[in-house]
Computed example of a mutant assay.
Amino acid sequence: MKFFLYHVVMKLNIKNETSRLRSVVLGIANNNGPIPVPEACYDPKSRLHVLNGTYPKEADMIRELEEVAKVFEKYNVEVYRPKIIENYNQIFARDICFVIEDKIFLANILPDREREVDAIEHVWSQVEKSNRIRLPEDCHIEGGDVMLWNEYIFIGTYLGSDYANFITARTNMAAINALKTYFPHKKIKYFNLRKSNTDPYNNALHLDCCFQPVGKDKAIIHKNGFLDEEDYKWLLDFFGKKNVFEIDKQEMYDMNSNIFSIDENTVISEVNFIRLNNWLEELGFTVEKVNYAEIAKQEGLLRCTTLPLIRD
């Protein structure tokens, strides 16, 4: 009798931000490494907390991530975690990879973070080889800048000629043009984001730091995150002003737009986002509230720590 080993192929499916979630990668904070020196920080908010002596403790971040893992368990979502690399920050799974339809893209991230990619090889290898995409080296892109909304792909970028001077500029036009070749049937809309290496109140690290759709037709938006007011107005018109929750500079800093949808009626949100959570609940959403304020000190929140693989 002959035995045949069949390689399990994961059938990826991501077409929007809010369809029922079935499978996800959730970041991990175990063995997270020492507090970085200010010059080694990838974003101004982390740098600020290092300088102030308020950088998050590993134990607190582990606890916060486990709160989210329990919510996923409650909703029967399959959860993958990165393999632990000793003394290495692996919290923000969205930065290193993203899925569009049935294809998974390895992000061309900051060179210092390349090892994070190896830690999700057990996920990457389950995908059909033809659907595993690594873009050319000149294509800079991170998952927080890529947002799917049915026939649209929304992408955050920075169009300034001084792009190379900003460690906070993570997605360039070369990457956007490359995605156009993979998805000619999609409408790709890109947004010029405000960047700062030193001021977290005036820095949209990724598109999801100043904008995110929720439900079927709602959105959270921070106007000042967009360098071009026309981009902000376009989103306001697209969703309709009555469907938009506008957040102020402090709420943007606290990461109010960086919540995460389990389905069209259910979101995971930070417990301290009182104004936002009230708005969502008044609209009929179920809001699963978690503590995530320590992780937020690194300029990322719920969407940044999650990498959806399959939605219905």
Results as ranks from 00 to 15, higher is better:
residue 24 V to F: 02
residue 197 N to V: 08
residue 311 R to P: 01
residue 82 P to Q: 04
residue 222 H to S: 12
residue 288 E to K: 07
residue 284 G to N: 08
residue 186 K to F: 01
residue 87 N to V: 10
residue 193 L to E: 04
residue 236 L to N: 14
residue 87 N to K: 14
residue 165 N to A: 10
residue 305 T to P: 04
residue 228 D to H: 07
residue 50 V to Q: 03
residue 62 I to S: 04
residue 169 A to I: 14
residue 18 T to Q: 06
residue 3 F to G: 11
residue 73 E to Q: 15
residue 212 Q to L: 12
residue 261 S to D: 02
residue 203 N to M: 07
residue 312 D to C: 00
residue 176 I to Y: 00
residue 27 G to W: 07
residue 272 N to V: 08
residue 296 A to L: 02
residue 144 G to T: 08
residue 299 E to N: 13
residue 184 P to G: 01
residue 185 H to L: 01
residue 10 M to P: 04
residue 255 M to G: 04
residue 307 L to F: 02
residue 59 A to Y: 12
residue 81 R to S: 08
residue 218 K to Y: 12
residue 304 C to V: 03
residue 42 Y to T: 12
residue 11 K to W: 06
residue 267 V to T: 03
residue 270 E to Q: 11
residue 222 H to G: 08
residue 126 Q to P: 06
residue 31 N to E: 15
residue 119 A to N: 10
residue 241 K to H: 09
residue 17 E to K: 10
residue 244 V to W: 01
residue 309 L to W: 03
residue 30 N to T: 15
residue 146 V to D: 01
residue 279 W to Y: 14
residue 191 F to D: 10
residue 244 V to C: 13
residue 188 I to W: 00
residue 221 I to V: 11
residue 39 E to H: 05
residue 138 D to G: 01
residue 102 D to V: 02
residue 148 L to D: 00
residue 206 H to D: 06
residue 66 E to Q: 15
residue 154 F to L: 09
residue 294 E to P: 00
residue 304 C to R: 05
residue 136 P to I: 05
residue 149 W to D: 11
residue 88 Y to C: 13
residue 84 I to H: 01
residue 197 N to P: 11
residue 54 T to G: 07
residue 266 T to E: 02
residue 145 D to V: 03
residue 57 K to L: 15
residue 189 K to T: 08
residue 275 R to L: 05
residue 293 A to V: 11
residue 126 Q to Y: 05
residue 81 R to L: 12
residue 279 W to E: 08
residue 228 D to P: 04
residue 224 N to V: 12
residue 49 H to S: 03
residue 264 E to S: 06
residue 15 K to G: 11
residue 202 N to E: 11
residue 218 K to T: 07
residue 273 F to R: 04
residue 258 N to A: 03
residue 163 Y to Q: 06
residue 102 D to F: 01
residue 251 E to G: 10
residue 113 R to Y: 06
residue 94 R to C: 05
residue 57 K to N: 13
residue 210 C to V: 14
residue 124 W to L: 06
residue 217 D to Y: 14
residue 132 R to V: 04
residue 131 N to V: 03
residue 45 K to L: 12
residue 213 P to F: 05
residue 4 F to Q: 15
residue 23 S to C: 10
residue 82 P to T: 03
residue 241 K to N: 08
residue 302 L to E: 02
residue 33 G to R: 09
residue 174 A to Y: 12
residue 33 G to L: 07
residue 15 K to D: 14
residue 295 I to T: 08
residue 187 K to E: 11
residue 91 I to D: 09
residue 253 Y to N: 05
residue 299 E to S: 08
residue 176 I to L: 00
residue 201 Y to M: 15
residue 254 D to E: 14
residue 45 K to D: 07
residue 80 Y to G: 05
residue 1 M to N: 13
residue 228 D to C: 08
residue 275 R to K: 11
residue 90 Q to C: 10
residue 274 I to M: 04
residue 202 N to Y: 06
residue 170 R to F: 03
residue 24 V to L: 01
residue 297 K to C: 05
residue 272 N to F: 04
residue 190 Y to I: 11
residue 129 K to F: 12
